[in-house]
Amino acid sequence: MEYSVHVRMNERLFLRNPEGSELGRRIVRQGILLFNEIGFEDATFKKLAERIGTKEASIYRYFENKHRLLVYLVTWYWQWLDFQLIFRTNNLIDPREKLERLLRLILLIDLGTPLANDIDLRALHNIVIHESSKAYLTHHVTEDNRQQLFKPYKDLCGRIADLILEYRPNYPYAQSRASSLIETAHYQAFFMQNLPSLTDFGVTDPDQPAGADKLLTFVRHLLFSSLDADPHCF
């Protein structure tokens, strides 16, 4: 089933709202495919312009540079994920079941549709795994944070922390566990594909059932072994 998700983006991310024109939407959607295919470092606005049949200058009317486009894409994903977390846990009562649903969502397991607003979610998910840390590992991170460019990620981590506290109200590290859960899942997925000696999984594609199951088992252990620990350890 296909569905539409309206994501309201921080206006500081762009010079002109890409969702307001056909060209802008193509820049975003083809930008995802380009970043996914050749990586952030090798991607250029010139290559993107050639891909969509426009001039390089046209892309600069929407985004100041490719880093801004990357932050836009990653931010869109965090907001989409936050919406999905609300939607997929709203009718659940058991706190553990909510956390189980969260883990599968982070790993994009049981995704009902590969597209949202014509955006290739699996390609975007792969970009998040490979490139998302480059959005904030910069010298201008403080200024970007002041402009609230990372607020959607913070909001998502805050929502996950609330689910953790619903399961274990006295857990003192909910916010840290929330952010580390996402980052660990993504780093382990990256290692599985590229640096398998840093995992216990070998060379495995995390998008395939076998790889996804192994990673799910690991992040489940990571989460619940800490939440179910002896409370005197806190």
Rank of each mutant, 00 (worst) to 15 (best):
Q188A: 15
R88Q: 10
H125D: 02
L124K: 01
G112N: 04
T113H: 07
Q148N: 14
S197E: 14
L137A: 11
I160Q: 02
T75Y: 03
A189V: 07
Q79F: 01
P169V: 00
H139V: 08
S133A: 13
F190C: 03
P172E: 12
L81N: 01
L108H: 14
P95W: 07
F201I: 13
N91Q: 13
N170R: 09
N117I: 00
K154S: 06
N126E: 12
I86N: 04
R168W: 02
I86D: 01
L103Y: 04
L149Y: 15
Y167L: 07
Q188N: 06
L149P: 10
N126F: 03
Q175S: 08
D155V: 05
V74H: 06
H130M: 09
L156E: 00
H186L: 09
K154F: 12
D207F: 15
V203S: 09
E100T: 08
S197Y: 06
L156R: 04
R104F: 07
P172C: 07
P172D: 07
D120Q: 04
V203D: 06
D205H: 12
I160W: 03
H140M: 12
L92A: 12
Y187A: 10
I106P: 01
F190E: 08
I86F: 01
I164P: 05
I164D: 05
T89Q: 07
L103F: 06
Q79K: 13
D94R: 10
A189E: 02
A161I: 03
P196S: 11
H186F: 14
I182H: 05
E166C: 07
D155E: 15
L92G: 11
P152Y: 04
Y72P: 02
T138Q: 14
L102I: 07
R122I: 13
I164R: 13
W76P: 02
I86V: 12
I127L: 08
I106A: 06
N91T: 14
L156K: 01
S132F: 00
D200W: 03
L198E: 02
T184S: 13
Q175E: 12
P206T: 00
L81T: 02
L73E: 04
D155W: 01
D110V: 01
H125W: 05
H186N: 15
D205S: 15
D207T: 07
N90A: 06
F83N: 00
